[in-house]
């Protein structure tokens, strides 16, 4: 009996051989994995066939199979288009700003929240702070639009406090746009993102804090020397995942808040794809831009992962 148990433990510690018995034992797991593999194939891999469009003069009439192949023409158009580079820059810039600010805010917020001693206050604050996550962008942008309009609360306060003489047209000044987008992202997501970090903090062994307290560490020292290093792996992994998302800087918020006067800074790749791919019915060009976006995304993840490897930190693969 005891021996059998021991063997089992041993078996579990190394990768089990694929035997019929093993397969039978894991059949539930296998069935469920297969379902997700099928899901992945159908929704992630099959659509890749549509990439063909990028190399065709695609027309809905002739379809994917009978459209004329034109090689790399669409990519040539893309890279010759000054707008595309501006759009690419905006995407990367807004993506990076969003990633860094939301990371800092979320960690900061999680730590602060963790320092609250009364659990009711803590829960109330946490609940309120993550509620905006459930609002759709159309609502958030609506609030922003009203708040920042000429008669909105922000301008009224600024004018009444004599900070400015006349109201500021926030949405027609280029330099404010990225800031507004970053602010909106943080307002919406900070509470939500903090949940993960808060969970990581809760799992820190309390002994560490007690030991530190005996050694004379203050509150700030405990945060700096225990909390932050303990959640570092979590931060690294989430950052790595997010690096791939930098290129997904957003669509809705820029689409809804942008306007022609500041299009130079507001347009992202996704909006570009919509405008050329859908509005101008140039599906091929839209696909080409989408492929380029995916490539950049993969490259970013690879770079992030190797950096993590060099630094000896947690990494994805």
């Amino acid at each position: 009996m005891a021996r059998e148990k021991k063997e089992r433990v041993k078996e579990a510690s190394i990768t089990p051989k694929i035997t019929r018995k093993e397969l039978k034992r894991q059949r539930v797991l296998i069935v469920w994995s297969i379902i997700f593999v099928i899901y992945g194939v159908i929704f992630c891999y099959l659509p890749l066939g549509g990439w063909l469009m990028a190399f065709q003069k695609y027309k809905p009439k002739t379809g994917l199979l009978h459209s004329k192949f034109i090689g790399l023409d669409k990519f040539k158009f893309l890279f010759a288009d000054a707008t595309f580079f501006r759009v690419f820059r905006n995407t990367i810039a807004m993506g990076t700003i969003n990633m860094i600010t939301t990371l800092i805010m979320a960690v900061l917020f999680a730590i602060l929240l963790n320092e609250i001693r009364t659990s009711i206050t803590k829960k109330v604050v946490q609940t309120i702070s993550y509620l905006p996550h459930f609002l759709s962008w159309i609502i958030v942008t609506g609030i922003l639009h009203d708040a920042l309009s000429s008669t909105g609360i922000v301008n009224e306060l600024l004018v009444n406090w004599h900070v400015v003489d006349t109201y500021i047209p926030f949405f027609s000044i280029e330099k404010y746009f990225w800031g507004i987008v970053a602010f909106a992202n943080n307002w919406k997501e900070t509470g939500w993102n903090a949940i993960v970090y808060l969970a990581a903090i809760t799992s820190i062994d309390p002994c560490l804090y007690e030991a530190a307290a005996i050694d004379g560490a203050g509150r700030g020292d405990k945060i700096w020397f225990i909390t932050l290093p303990s959640i570092k792996p979590t931060i690294m992994i989430l950052t790595l995942i997010n690096i791939g998302n930098v290129i997904n800087a957003g669509f809705e918020i820029q689409y809804l808040l942008g306007n022609p006067t500041i299009v130079d800074v507001s347009e992202t790749i996704d909006i570009y794809v919509l405008r050329w791919g859908i509005s101008q019915m140039d599906y091929s060009l839209g696909t080409a831009a989408g492929i380029f976006k995916s490539l950049v995304s993969i490259i970013l993840i690879l770079i992030g992962n190797s950096v993590a490897k060099v630094l000896g930190e947690e990494r994805l693969f």
Binding site: P60, I138, L274, G277, I278, S279, Q280, M281, Y283
Partner: peptide, 16 residues
């Protein structure tokens, strides 16, 4: 609603 006609129609054509 909230789109241009080209976007709306383009989406319909893409989806058939």
């Amino acid at each position: 609603t909230g789109q241009t006609a080209e976007e709306a129609v383009g989406t319909m054509i893409a989806a058939g």
